[in-house]
């Protein structure tokens, strides 16, 4: 073999080795979630301990999609497939960021959680997004929520939208109570609603005693502002200055104006 041939052979070997080295690309990180999402295979669920007992939380690439009672995984996954048309598979734990956000939210801290509310109507979404705004440890009546979303006549519809909340507890529909002040219904039942409120420092029996006594609003005779009794401003009113009202009209007739934080009525 002459020099030229040897060099050609070496070149050829180098070429084939070079080709071998072109293998082993890493797929871009986003490819797996994109494919599973496109195929509707991205939905996972994991167990979560909560103040109202064990829960199951389902999520996908869009965010948290469902929260269910933890006792019956088969019922949860079947219900999920029926409602959203996608299979749900277990995972021992959520992605770190999501797990962290949920833990913080349950501990009463601020944390952004993304939700997948695609399967809901515009009205249902508006209702739930408004419910998120109610601060921890406070409650508002259904009629308030209906008015806040610009649909004052749709109180019953708000009730059913909250009843269809796919992500209870994380979207705090337990903070909406009946317009007569009683705790009322909940996706997971009245007892769970009471437990959820108690976990936020509220005393459900106290709320209902007040409601039965006909008290709807608390006011301060120094500021002459009236609030929902659980509003953070109302809770600061000291006993000697606390005035109660049975209705919005009574409060305004007495010369009181609605609080701008809890907005018991539109301030005029």
């Amino acid at each position: 073999m002459d020099h030229r041939q040897q060099r050609l052979l070496a070149d050829a070997r180098r070429l084939v080795r070079g080709l071998h080295e072109l293998a082993g690309e890493e797929a871009p990180a986003g490819i797996l979630p994109a494919i599973l999402g496109e195929l509707g295979l991205a939905d996972r669920y994991f167990p979560l301990d909560s103040p109202i007992g064990p829960l199951l939380v389902a999520y996908n690439e869009h965010g948290v999609a469902a929260v269910g009672r933890g006792e019956d995984t088969a019922a949860f996954t079947e219900g999920y497939a029926r409602r959203f048309g996608r299979p749900l598979r277990p995972t021992p734990a959520p992605p770190a960021a999501l797990g962290h956000a949920i833990a913080r939210r349950l501990a009463g801290e601020r944390a952004e959680i993304r939700f997948d509310l695609r399967g809901l109507s515009e009205f249902e979404r508006a209702t739930l997004l408004k419910a998120i705004e109610i601060p921890r440890g406070e409650v508002r009546p259904y009629a308030w929520l209906a008015r806040e979303i610009g649909r004052p006549g749709a109180v019953r519809a708000v009730g059913s939208a909250l009843g269809r909340n796919p992500v209870p507890l994380l979207i705090p529909c337990h903070r909406i109570v009946r317009s007569d002040g009683l705790i009322g219904d909940y996706v997971f039942g009245n007892a769970a609603k009471r437990a959820a409120l108690a976990a936020e420092g509220l005393v459900p029996d106290e709320i209902e005693t007040r409601a039965r006594a006909g008290v709807r609003f608390h006011a301060s005779d120094t500021t002459r502002i009236y609030c929902f009794p659980t509003c953070r401003n109302a809770r600061r009113i000291t006993a000697p200055h606390l005035i109660t009202f049975a209705s919005d009209r009574a409060a305004q007739a007495a010369g009181y104006r609605p609080c701008k934080v809890c907005r018991p009525a539109i301030a005029s």
């Binding site: 072109l22 293998a23 082993g24 690309e25 890493e26 797929a27 871009p28 490819i31 797996l32 494919i35 599973l36 195929l39 295979l41 299979p87 598979r89």
Partner: peptide
């Protein structure tokens, strides 16, 4: 199929991407 398909993407995703990259030359 639904349960196992993720495994297919995990096992073959890199190779298939690499193959496509060599084929078309654009990431």
């Amino acid at each position: 199929l639904d349960g196992a398909f993720e495994g297919v993407v995990v096992a073959h995703g890199g190779r298939l991407y690499g193959f496509a990259l060599r084929l078309c030359g654009d990431r």
